[in-house]
């Protein structure tokens, strides 16, 4: 597998949960989520893909939306975590830490076992 294909595959599996996790503290609008992802480096290549992702998460009931006015600007659609979205984040968190520990363990100690 080419190495950039590998990065794409890895991103695909986690990006949805990263976005959900970003909505945990407070509702955010799409552009805000994108800025946060951008500030955290390599998580997203095509920023526009966050919008269909949010739309899909809404139809799956993981997030809810509401329009909010912005002073001196156009209204923004804010995304808020639903109850099932909160559950999904918690589940992913547990799963991720286990998964990450296993992979770390193999890469750090694998050769010595």
């Amino acid at each position: 597998m080419p190495i950039d294909g590998l990065a794409t595959q890895l991103r695909k599996g986690v990006i949805e949960y990263c976005v959900l996790a970003m909505l945990k503290e407070m509702p955010r609008y799409g552009g805000e989520v994108i800025q946060m992802l951008r500030a955290r480096g390599e998580l997203v290549v095509s920023e526009g893909t966050i919008y269909p992702l949010l739309s899909r998460m809404r139809s799956e009931g993981l997030v809810e939306t509401e329009w909010r006015d912005t002073p001196g600007g156009a209204p923004r659609r804010y995304y808020r975590l639903s109850r099932s979205g909160q559950k999904a984040v918690a589940q992913f968190r547990d799963e991720w830490f286990r998964f990450r520990d296993s992979v770390d363990n193999i890469f750090r100690n694998g050769a010595r076992q």
Partner: peptide, 30 residues
């Protein structure tokens, strides 16, 4: 949503040129 995103990002550009706008669209992706 993407139309709003572009409008908002353009509003934040201090001077809009071909290059900055292309860059914005490129970041959005194919």
């Amino acid at each position: 949503e993407i139309r709003r995103h572009i409008a908002e990002e353009r509003g934040g550009l201090t001077d809009e040129s071909d290059a900055t706008l292309m860059n914005l669209l490129e970041r959005l992706g194919d």
